[in-house]
Design a protein around this nucleic acid. Structure first.
Lengths: 144, 144
DNA sequence: GATAATTCCTATAAGTTCAATCGGGAATCT
DNA sequence: AGATTCCCGATTGAACTTATAGGAATTATC
């Protein structure tokens, strides 16, 4: 029941872009260095974010990535679901899926539904802007 | 970000025992058959529940398992944490762990903390008694 | 136009976890 | 004695995670 590195790194990556957004593209190398994450691994992750239109890429020297929209328009849920897949705790309560094959009156499904809603109610209401604000306020070690 | 079969099966197992509790031991074979789960696999799971004192076992013919306490005294969280391990979405917000090594002002940690609390607030307030009641009320296919 | 910087793409691999299966041992009721 | 049930540890196959590796395509700058 853990979020994988893919989702966690994606969030930190997007947060890094949000915090350092100046209109100029930001090199992935720099993000990787600041966040202590393998550059090659980050490439794979940002590729997903890029294809989904979450970031815009600029190739060549002075290239890099910039957020496609304002930080307030990304929720943590959007980023996590994109990179991580569904956040539902069990398959049978995933969006788009029908009712569980096993039983109609499956009581545990009600529990899973509630857990799913609880998770969603958090991640769908926290935006990159919120994360950036939290980072800035507790910014002991925030260096530009 | 999924609950594994171990936790899900444990919950269904305990719910099965709660629903059929008559004081007499219930054979694991029957539970396995009703729930459509491998008997051998269930053995491993109930072994954990047994060692933790959640169920009481009786060996030999007419043997089986019974709940050690009333259904209202088990929360889903107790059962899931025992079989599944921590339910925290990331390591750094797990109970007993110190603050994340990486950074002091890690904004994402606040998010994870909120997700963790959201999950806990559900699973720690739903008891086996609740699950049993839900099962009985929507009891389309509940057969004794 | 050459060079260097950067993103882009695909393949592979080591390690871990999941979800069982298998085979037998120990206790206990009849 | 014999059947039934719980108990225990080893093994295994598949999938997933978490990267690493190597190079191709694009573009700014000199």
């Amino acid at each position: 029941m853990k979020i994988s590195t893919k989702g966690r790194y994606a969030l930190r990556l997007m947060l890094d872009l949000a915090l350092r957004d100046s209109g100029e593209p930001i090199r992935l190398k720099d993000v990787a260095h600041r966040q202590g994450i393998s550059e090659k691994y980050l490439e794979q992750i940002i590729s997903v974010l890029n294809k989904a239109g979450f970031v815009r890429s600029v190739r060549g020297p002075q290239g890099g990535y910039v957020l496609a929209r304002a930080p307030g328009e990304y929720t943590a849920g959007m980023i996590l679901r994109l990179t991580e897949g569904s956040l539902a705790p069990v398959e049978c309560v995933e969006r788009g899926k029908g009712v569980c094959d096993r039983e109609n009156g499956c009581a545990t499904q009600i529990l899973w539904k509630r857990v799913d809603e609880a998770i969603s109610s958090v991640v769908d209401h926290v935006t990159l802007e919120d994360l950036a604000a939290w980072q800035m306020s507790g910014a002991d070690d925030y260096v530009i």
